[in-house]
């Protein structure tokens, strides 16, 4: 719920193209991954981002995190223009803006024990003692169902879902103001998935953070998002309050998406 109408993140006219070559003698073709994206996320808001595979969701996430450069456009985070900041100038923003990536294994350094992986951000960004840090790690891991005793293991010694939960814990450790969560619960069984979503909702209530929640599962998007943005072939085609989007989808792509849900045909409002 928007306690106030302050904005945490704004994207203005973001565009991104990729050049790909076709065939041996390199006829180039251009893929427009994002076309003129305008998007605002309020403080304390969970914004669901939905759209078909390849529509540009992860690309947008990576641009906001400043991991890749847009062709054009502007990103305002917490009232500051971060579009042109250098890597070192971005440093103070990193703890405020965390990410849970779509591919858990490739975002965990395979040569680091989980404990060191989790300690690192707290060592860089806080002045806490190792003991305090470990206590915090232990607490956050318990919230996602991972035992602190397992932290001496390496990433490949966990199951896919356990790795995803370790990534979630890492993103939460610094109590960021804003999290980009790219399919954060997609490899979790429904019970643990519900536990993690409950945790997100509780954190939103208790310390008020904002989240860009990317998911293909419309049921959970509907459950936890305050608002929804619908993206199709690199364009945001519709944004609105969750209830509006589900009750009265306006754009034809949104309608197609909502009506692809088998249950939707039996629902009465």
């Amino acid at each position: 719920m928007q306690k106030d109408n302050e904005i945490i993140l704004q994207c203005f006219n973001i565009s991104k193209t990729y050049q790909l070559k076709e065939g041996f003698f390199g006829k180039k073709i251009t893929i427009s991954a994002l076309k003129n994206i305008n998007l605002s996320i309020f403080k304390n808001e969970i914004l669901g981002l939905v759209g078909e595979s390849g529509s540009g969701k992860s690309t947008l996430g990576r641009i906001i995190l400043r991991l890749i450069e847009p062709d054009s456009g502007q990103i305002i985070f917490d009232n500051q223009d971060i579009t042109k900041l250098s890597y070192s100038q971005m440093k103070p923003f990193r703890p405020k803006m965390q990410a849970i990536f779509q591919d858990p294994l490739s975002s965990l350094n395979p040569r680091m024990r989980i404990l060191d992986l989790l300690r690192e951000p707290l060592q860089i960004h806080t002045k806490k003692t190792t003991k305090e840090i470990d206590e915090e790690i232990s607490f956050t891991l318990s919230q996602v169902g991972i035992n602190f005793n397992d932290t001496f293991k390496y990433p490949h010694e966990f199951s896919g879902g356990q790795r995803q939960r370790i990534n979630i814990a890492r993103a939460l450790l610094l109590k960021p103001k804003f999290i980009i969560a790219d399919e954060p619960v997609s490899s979790l069984d429904v019970s643990i998935q519900a536990q993690i979503l409950n945790l997100f909702m509780e954190l939103q209530r208790t310390y008020g953070f904002s989240m860009l929640f990317i998911s293909h599962d419309l049921r959970i998007v509907r459950h936890i998002s305050d608002r929804i943005a619908v993206i199709s072939s690199g364009e945001i085609v519709e944004t609105g309050l969750t209830k509006e989007i589900f009750d009265n989808p306006k754009h034809s792509y949104t309608q197609k998406l909502i009506y692809s849900l088998p249950e939707k045909h039996f629902l009465k409002y």
Binding site: M1, S191, I192, A194, R222, H223, K264
Partner: peptide
Amino acid sequence: LIDAVPTIDSTPKTPLKTIPGY
């Protein structure tokens, strides 16, 4: 597990059903 399957008519923003504990 079957009880925890998300549905399209859940009440938004309320705690979802889980199997307590890990």
